[in-house]
Simulated assay, not measured.
Amino acid sequence: MLQVDLNCDMGEGFGVYRTSPDSELMKYITSANIACGFHAGDAATIRRTVKLALEHGVAIGAHPGLPDLAGFGRRVMGITPEEAYEMTVYQLGAVQAFAKSEGGAVAHVKPHGALYNMAAGNRQLADAIAEAVYKVDPSLLLFGLAGSELIHAGKAIGLHTINEVFADRTYESDGSLTPRGAAGAVIADAGRAAEQAVNMIKNGEVLTRKQSRLILKAETVCVHGDTPGALEHVKQLREALEAEGIAVKKAGKEA
Rank of each mutant, 00 (worst) to 15 (best):
L2I: 09
L2C: 02
Q3M: 09
L6G: 02
M10K: 05
F14T: 01
Y17V: 09
P21Y: 02
L25C: 03
Y28N: 07
T30I: 13
S31E: 05
A35S: 13
C36Q: 06
C36K: 10
H39E: 10
A40G: 04
G41Q: 08
A43F: 08
A44R: 12
T45L: 14
I46F: 06
R48A: 15
K51S: 03
L54F: 05
E55L: 14
E55T: 01
V58H: 03
H63C: 10
G65C: 11
L66T: 00
D68K: 06
G71C: 04
G71N: 08
R74A: 09
G78C: 10
G78P: 00
E82N: 10
E83G: 02
Q96R: 15
G104A: 05
G104V: 06
G104R: 09
V106E: 00
A107R: 14
H108W: 08
V109I: 15
P111Q: 08
H112A: 13
H112N: 07
A114N: 03
A114I: 07
Y116W: 12
Y116T: 05
N117K: 12
A120G: 07
A120Y: 06
L125Q: 04
D127Q: 14
A128T: 01
A128R: 09
I129K: 04
I129N: 02
D137E: 10
S139V: 01
L142W: 06
L145Y: 03
I151S: 05
I151E: 03
H152S: 13
I157T: 01
L159F: 06
N163Q: 12
N163Y: 02
V165R: 03
V165F: 08
F166K: 06
F166C: 07
A167I: 06
D168S: 09
T170V: 04
E172I: 03
S173M: 10
A182F: 14
A183D: 11
V186N: 05
A193W: 04
A194I: 07
N199Q: 13
N199A: 12
M200W: 04
M200D: 00
I201K: 05
I201M: 06
K202G: 00
N203H: 15
V206S: 08
T208P: 09
K210C: 12
Q211W: 07
A218R: 08
A218T: 04
T220H: 01
V221G: 03
V221F: 02
C222T: 00
V223E: 02
D226H: 09
T227E: 07
T227Y: 07
H233I: 11
V234H: 05
K235S: 04
K235M: 15
K235I: 15
E239P: 01
E239D: 12
A240V: 08
G245P: 07
G245A: 10
A247V: 10
V248T: 00
K253E: 12
A255D: 00
